[in-house]
Design a protein around this nucleic acid. Structure first.
Lengths: 213, 213
DNA sequence: TAGATTGTTAATCGATTAACAATC
DNA sequence: TAGATTGTTAATCGATTAACAATC
């Protein structure tokens, strides 16, 4: 199937899981994997997986399954995972600093290469190898380094305002760790992390589970 | 509509957003809010919101909309948000420690009251007011304090194993920050945070946006 | 009253699951 | 070859959107 076709969001989420899993399998030198084994590992059904993979220009082999490295490469192409992607992060709080130091991002090609804060007491301090920059220098750095993605790790009250600035300076996508919905023009997609909401979702699932048993 | 009915997952996610928004509005002393204003704020449609609220035992008032405090209370009841919920966290890495110090959790009633690690060099150190405990004492502490929720903030390699232990010791729900899918019995729900996948999803959305324009 | 806004039913849309032919 | 597994079409299920009557 053609790359030009829009892939539905639930499928995109799963494709990303397949990529992680294929990276793992191909590192373990496993050459072939059938859909039912992927399914078992990721809590899905094999039918779903085969349907999802139709969005890729990649085919399995009957009786053997999918070539792990081949599938990994195909998915990596879809997600542009073969080149490094630079990111700016706003908000040098607990979460912000933890993300800068989070190896997993770097291992997957996402490099937070600048961190900003508005608090004068924090500006100039180091987080890992990065120096916390004054938020007033956002514009020049984004332009100079041609950065496309911003991570918002500021409190709720300033999140929208920070987003507006980032967009004004040319940022094209946002990952939002603040608990408020960020409004953007259609040309700037946002992915929301919603950590508190995830806990609430969990609490509700647990309640459901209790009621059933 | 009755609380006993199972609420579909996409609806649960939105209801949690409504709760956050109502907490905000009722703190700002706004008494009434119509569905279209909620919708505008959260990037939804008013129809969706009215459909969603049917799952609650709470009704709006024609011409005025929804009573913010009333809706907040009804949603809080659904999510058991009126009592403190204790949590154990495993993994005193960057993310784990940041979450312990994350005020937003506490402000919403989620209290991480124990942090564990297996690294002897970390055990005994303090994170905020908490002392990092030896993972071997997990069992007794979970039983003693009767803790129901565990947050997994360990690397991929040990995540499943940590989950298995937590479940063995009586934990009833997991929030997973590690990048692997956690397998659990049906009686133990898991919510996955998938931070790298969220970035991939964002990259794909940005690619789509580029192609469209 | 007229207009605004809810609650609800019906229609549409989209995603998942089932079924199965093709074939390595 | 027989059995396993894919790729694909059709059927089902579920969620969103549209439409609109009820009424404050």
């Amino acid at each position: 199937m053609k790359n030009l076709e829009k892939i539905p969001n639930p499928v995109v989420k799963r494709l990303s899981k397949y990529l992680a899993h294929m990276q793992h399998l191909s590192k373990s030198n496993l050459k072939w994997v059938p859909s039912y084994k992927i399914a078992r590992h990721l809590g899905l059904t094999s039918e779903t997986i085969r349907q999802d993979l139709k969005y890729l220009d990649f085919y399995g082999v009957k009786k053997r399954g999918y070539h792990t490295t081949g599938l990994k490469n195909s998915l990596a192409r879809l997600f542009e995972a073969n080149s490094q992607i630079d990111i700016v992060l706003i908000g040098a709080g607990n979460i912000g600093c933890a993300l800068v130091q989070h190896d997993e991002f770097r291992e997957h090609g996402f490099v937070i290469c600048e961190i900003f804060d508005s608090n004068p007491k924090k500006i100039g301090n180091k987080v890992d190898a990065l120096v916390i920059q004054d938020i007033n220098s956002l514009r020049t750095i984004i332009k100079e380094k041609n950065i496309k993605i911003g991570i918002i790790a500021v409190p709720a009250e300033t999140a929208q305002q920070v987003a507006d600035q980032l967009i004004l300076y040319g940022i094209q996508g946002l990952l939002n760790f603040s608990p408020v919905h960020i409004m953007t023009p259609k040309s700037v997609p946002v992915t929301e992390m919603r950590m508190v909401d995830s806990l609430r979702e969990l609490v509700y699932s647990m309640k459901q589970t209790r009621l059933k048993n």
